[in-house]
Design a protein around this nucleic acid. Sequence first.
DNA 1: ATGAAAGCGCTAACAT
DNA 2: ATGTTAGCGCTTTCAT
Lengths: 376, 376
Amino acid sequence: MTRLARPGGSPPTPRSVDVARLAGVSQKTVSRVLNDEPYVSADMRRRVLDAAEELGYRRNQAARALASGRTRSIGVVTLGSALYGPASLLVGIERAVREVGYTLRVAATIEGDPGGIAGALASLLDQGVDGVVISEPIDEGVSLISVDVPVLVLGAPPNFAAPQVVTARVGARLLARAATEHLLELGHATVHHVAGPQRWYSTRDRLAGWREALRAHGADEPPVVEGDWSAASGYAAGRELAGDGTVTAVFAANDDMAIGLIRAQLEAGRRVPEDISVVGFDDIPVAAYVTPPLTTVRQPFDEVARQGLALLVHVIEKPDVELPPAADQPVELVVRASTAPPPPRPIPGRGRRAIPHAHGGPHGQPAGSEVPSTRP
Amino acid sequence: MTRLARPGGSPPTPRSVDVARLAGVSQKTVSRVLNDEPYVSADMRRRVLDAAEELGYRRNQAARALASGRTRSIGVVTLGSALYGPASLLVGIERAVREVGYTLRVAATIEGDPGGIAGALASLLDQGVDGVVISEPIDEGVSLISVDVPVLVLGAPPNFAAPQVVTARVGARLLARAATEHLLELGHATVHHVAGPQRWYSTRDRLAGWREALRAHGADEPPVVEGDWSAASGYAAGRELAGDGTVTAVFAANDDMAIGLIRAQLEAGRRVPEDISVVGFDDIPVAAYVTPPLTTVRQPFDEVARQGLALLVHVIEKPDVELPPAADQPVELVVRASTAPPPPRPIPGRGRRAIPHAHGGPHGQPAGSEVPSTRP
DNA sequence: ATGAAAGCGCTAACAT
DNA sequence: ATGTTAGCGCTTTCAT
């Protein structure tokens, strides 16, 4: 139907029969060649390929889909948001889908719309996708969604009824743990956490990592402040925490909130990292250039997408073969200048006192590392 | 083929004949009802709808596409990047496509791959999309690409051969002009510009707006520093400019570069905005929370996408009817604390001297406006 | 190793 | 207003 227009006018778009006629073979042979089916002699293949080339032939995907029951397309349910995490994941998915020879269809969930995921899913299934990936899952109170194609869930535990559900771990828990431990190892008595909205799986994953680290170090678990990923919510959280002089270290669930939080500290007259250390999450493009350059952790979006898609395609194409094992994701902590040992003694204020550390030492390399000196 | 699975097991997915049988009508009537064709009695319609509902019937899109030659889908050629601008545009496009009742297919251009746009386009046309939108176009030296479906180009001049090419202006030129004028009106003798890569249409658009403003004010046009949208490149540009004491105002083509640039100024011992003013472009989520809060302009991504898609769907569905006129995009300048009048006299240094302005006045509201006090 | 025939599930044209 | 008859351009049997 629709294809790159032929240069000189509009000879009707060629069909496989046209190719067959030109090559002097049956239409079925053309189909065989184009689908790389066995049992075609080399020179037959050549003749068909040449004829196809000459006519500028391209297969009609609708007809293929109708006849075969497969579309060679994968649908992604994504967030209708330009947040760095979801956007990066989407980019990674697009690339991975292309690499495995499929095409991508996108359905975004409508913000705030309950049942958004179910709606987006329904739209994709209507379109006949061969598999679905759910990026950045959010709880919607929907206990069970039934889907009749394989599903890849990025980062969440399976709660879908589908022929196959595969999962690729974003590794956020480990990253959150590393971020928190970095702070604890710097000597902070404990680490506060500014989380994302509870409905997000990402939020809970990071929370879990933070808790793990605190427990492993025997540190107290302070109450969690909940934000909404926005810098504005980080700022608000920052004002809240600034009132408590015992807070010396904060792990924010994303960089935007970390930046808002830092801003609030500065306005409250507290220095970062001298008075309070802050770690973000994501390593957004500007993280190395804000003041102070932000210590953060980096998520391997592309790796996760690639690995997840390999699994998905595997179950689509060989439902019966055992799944290949998933490789672990690397944990990348990027230490910059927003973290340092705690101040020698807690800032005056009520509440719990932080444990003074005599040997605060120069662990904190407060230099804007990573800041390059030449333009790329 | 693929649809939400029926709850209790797997009765074969119903076809339109099944619906027809159950409703006691012909298969064609089912088709008529589902396509909202005229000449169907009200009760016939009801019977069909009820039967469809009862069976959980959903039309097979592949069959529809094959029979009708249309897919009701739109393809978007986008950048394989999570940059705020392109990502926001993609989100806007997805929403707009959904709103007009189409579905979205995505093909990203491979970074650095020449002919990336052509390749992505070919993939989409292969898939039988009814229309294509080219987001954030880049020159690839491809003089002419022929496409046989309508094309919407976001922000660029038409250089495609297609049945119809429509354009929606992002309005970046006007925004760039407003950003530059803001600086000039603050009293700066001239405004330097850190641009994006020349191949991008966005870059040229912003350049044009900047030039217009300078000319309108009779200001000198300093040489352009070219970046690559990254904060790192803005940082490099900032080091370059920091060497020239006459520079008092800079307009960066996006916020990331502006933030990198500010960082370089601070490291060079120049204060923002006291010594040098900086305006960004995009109003990224953290812009209000970096130090100093960034003055910037905001692009109406959603509006542009919505308006452009309305045009595209119009030419797809009514190729012969005159195009509705496009509305102008609003120009939104967000003044924060990174801009102020120039310093009373130029900082010592060689080169052109800035014109001293005796009445620098308190135009610059260096307060972090917009910083909310409560969490959303 | 190659070909002929029969659909895939719809929409479109043409009756009635 | 409703039904009948052909395809749409492939992939799939099943022959040969």
